[in-house]
Amino acid sequence: MSHLTEEQQVLAHYGEPLDDALVAHLESCEQCRRDRDTLVASLAAIEDPGPELPHDYEQQVWHRLHWQLRRDARPNRHWWLASAAASALLLVAVGFLAGRGSRPNDPVPTVRHAQPAAERPPDATLDAVMTSAVTEQVGRSERLLTSLSNLSPDESDLEAERLTAERLLVSNRIHRAVAREQGAPEVAALLDEIEPILLEIAHSGSGLDDSELDALQERIESRGLIFKLRVISSTLESKSSKRRPSSPPATRL
């Protein structure tokens, strides 16, 4: 009988079953046993415990993660609907206030829509709601673009990203309009800039081929979209937290 191949030796070492005849041969063949012993010695030399981690490593991971997850809604399929509905209501409210402000006979005409952003009351309810909704939009967009940037060509299943883009696209238009209305042109401009990306992903159908994915990743990177989203997100987050000094910390992710 011929000797065991190197592949058979390796797989047997890692617990893959051998034919009875091969097992019998291995026991009786000195050369095969010698080959096995050499293989075992080589593999036994490879031990890599990795760096020593602090005892509270898991807590540190959670601490970093929690901050990011707080900006994320519950992992369900309906967050986008709630977000879009809230934004639509918000847009109606903005339109209503703007309409009131422009009525000639209004006894207390509001000029809110005409005020520069810097002159507005910092704790205005509408601003706070807008900030919260847009922060969420920006955060989700950032995560989607990060995920797209990290995709490798062999990851052909873009269904999750496509659905997310589709939903973000609906709310993106509303949030952009709200941002413009609320005097946040830099936010509106950024949402405007990412819209073609969302559109492309949302309409990607069965996925993107390698060159399309490369081109998309290049666009995201060359325009620094993830960085811009992070900056805006951080600014909005900071603005939002300054507004609620006495409110309890958010516990929802």
């Binding site: 990795g50 981690l53 490593y57 807590q59 993660l65 519950r74 369900n76 929802r252 992710l253």
Partner: peptide
């Protein structure tokens, strides 16, 4: 629990698997 709305419960998954994921990622 997480899917039912208790999002903080995700912490237990991090605590249970964080070290193993790191070890794999490092290797």
């Amino acid at each position: 629990r997480v899917l039912g709305g208790d999002s903080d419960a995700f912490r237990f998954l991090v605590e249970r698997h964080g070290r193993a994921v790191f070890r794999l990622a490092y290797r």
